[in-house]
Structure formats: structure tokens, C-alpha cells
């Protein structure tokens, strides 16, 4: 469990980082919090010849309010996201999701961008980005592009990034004050990747749902957006919806898998229940207000 030899650079700017990535022609790996990369290096499952450490690039860190939303620097530590007043006030579901990422100790080092970029199918943050409609800012020496989280993931640990590109920001659109948040995760032990989980938000105006963002994790090769359920919810009043029917339609948009921890059928069965439970609780919470 010792990594294969590699070089190491810690550029001070995005430009420098991108130049190194371009020069490495795919042989580089970006080091943010290292909570996945370092074990992969030690297992020799990843053998880059150069590590580009982005922790010395100030502009990649921090959580700020921007026009119509919140921007999170990819190298922002997960522990800082948990403590962020901005997130707690504006998008508390992100805080809830980050609390479920790994353990206290790993969150001290792990980054928001690292988790989102990696795209573990059963991880919380990629699904959160997809559910809330986040936009991922990607830069290279050639320029800058914005990709919606929805389009970012291609498969487990696979995304649209080219080898010379770096994620430089994640922007979450603002959700109206008073929106409902939904977060449910079933994992064998706290901190494990989910057997099944779901995350999202519902915006409500004048008693009707005006905007719904819902996504699953652990229910397919990528975060799975519950499009049909979102469609069914829009325009409804909370009192009128049937959580069971919505849950059924939400599970229809998944492609769960078998692994040694559980089966696709378990994920589908329990996922439906979790979804219905989560909706019921959200409704109860809303009525309690």
C-alpha cells in the first residue's frame, strides 16, 4: 500500500494548475482533500505521474452569495460547509447532505468539490448538486465553460471533464426562502456510502409547488434525477399529493444495481418507501409551520 512514484506540484493559481494538467496529457491527478485519491494511490489503482495539489489556490476556496445563488469553491473543506452560515440560511439541505459525507475526521480534510467531481454513485453531494440544479464551472487553458450538474456525470466516477480541465466552482441556484428540504439516507453504518438515498428541495408559492428538484443516490450509475416525480409535483398543493404515487414515479427514474451489500430489488423497494416517508415528513413539517 505504497503509491507508485509520482511528481508533485502545488500551483498558486488556476492558470498554473490548468497549464500543468494540459502538459500532463491525462497523466495528472488533482489533489484536493485526498480522501479518495490517497487510498486509490496507495492501492495503486490510480497511478498518475504527477499530482496537482490545488489547496494553495485561494480562489478555489470559500462559500459566497452570488447573483441568484451560492457559489462554493471546489477546495472548500466539507467541515467548513457544515459550519457555513450562508448555507445554513439559504440552502440547509446542502449542510444536511455534507453531514452525511464520511466521518467527522474525513470531513476535516475532504472537499465539497472533490466529492462532487469524483461522482461516486452512492455519494450525497453529486446527487445534491443534480437535485438542486447546480452549475459546475470548468476551466482549462483554453477557456471556461459551465456544465449543469445534470449533464456532468457519465457513469460511476466518470464525468465530462477533459484531462486538461479543472472544476473551479459549483454554483447552486437560489431557492426561495421557506422552501422544503428533503434528505434521506439509508446506510449500513453512519458514514458509509448509501444503500439508497434521496435529496432535494420543493419551492412553494401560494400553497402550490412551483419548483421541484429531486435526485437519488445509490440508485444507479450516476445521481439519478427523479424527473417524473418532479413533473408530477409541480403545480400541486402539498395537501393534495399522494406520496406513494410520487414515490413510485420517482423510482421509475432509477437504475439500481446489485452489489455485495444489497440487491437492486432491495434498493427499489426500500427507496420507494423512503421517498414516500420523506415526502410525508416534509408535508408534516410544512403544516407545522
Amino acid at each position: 500500500m505504497k503509491p507508485a512514484p509520482f511528481d508533485y506540484v502545488a500551483p498558486a493559481s488556476v492558470e498554473e494548475a490548468c497549464a500543468t494538467l494540459a502538459e500532463a496529457c491525462g497523466g495528472a491527478a488533482v489533489l484536493a482533500g485526498g480522501q479518495t485519491l490517497i487510498p486509490l494511490l496507495n492501492l495503486r489503482m490510480s497511478q498518475p505521474f504527477i499530482l496537482v495539489d490545488i489547496n494553495n489556490i485561494p480562489e478555489l476556496k470559500g462559500i459566497t452569495r452570488v447573483d441568484h445563488g451560492i457559489r462554493i469553491g471546489p477546495a472548500t473543506r466539507q467541515c467548513d460547509a457544515v459550519d457555513s452560515d450562508i448555507l445554513i440560511q439559504d440552502l440547509p439541505v446542502i449542510v444536511e447532505a455534507v453531514r452525511h459525507v464520511g466521518h467527522h475526521q474525513t470531513r476535516n480534510r475532504g472537499t465539497v468539490g472533490g466529492s462532487i467531481t469524483l461522482g461516486e454513485p452512492a455519494a450525497e453531494l453529486p446527487a445534491t448538486a443534480v437535485a438542486l440544479g447546480a452549475t459546475i464551472e470548468i476551466r482549462s487553458s483554453q477557456g471556461i465553460r459551465q456544465v449543469s450538474a445534470d449533464e456532468f456525470y457519465l457513469g460511476p466516477y466518470m464525468n465530462v471533464l477533459e484531462h486538461d480541465e479543472l472544476v473551479t466552482g459549483i454554483t447552486f441556484p437560489g431557492w426561495p426562502q421557506g422552501h422544503l428540504t428533503i434528505f434521506r439516507e439509508l446506510a449500513q453504518r453512519p458514514g458509509d456510502f448509501a444503500l439508497v438515498g434521496l435529496v432535494g428541495a420543493l419551492a412553494i408559492e401560494a400553497g402550490k409547488i412551483t419548483h421541484a428538484g429531486l435526485a437519488w443516490f445509490g440508485m444507479g450509475p450516476t445521481p439519478m434525477k427523479a424527473r417524473q416525480a418532479e413533473q408530477l409535483l409541480i403545480g400541486q398543493s402539498l395537501q393534495d399529493i399522494d406520496p406513494e404515487i410520487i414515490a413510485e414515479s420517482a423510482v421509475a427514474d432509477t437504475a439500481p444495481f446489485d452489489d455485495q451489500h444489497t440487491s437492486a430489488e432491495y434498493r427499489r423497494t426500500v427507496g420507494t418507501r423512503l421517498f414516500a416517508r420523506a415526502l410525508l415528513e416534509a408535508i408534516d413539517a410544512q403544516e407545522a409551520v
Binding site: 449533464e151 456525470y153 457519465l154 450509475p221 450516476t222 439519478m224 444495481f257
Partner: peptide, 9 residues
């Protein structure tokens, strides 16, 4: 959005 990664399983 048709460019969403369709799960290929």
C-alpha cells in the same frame, strides 16, 4: 435534456 447520462446497465 437528452444529454443526461442514460444509465447503461
Amino acid at each position: 435534456n437528452t444529454s443526461v447520462a442514460e444509465p447503461v446497465t
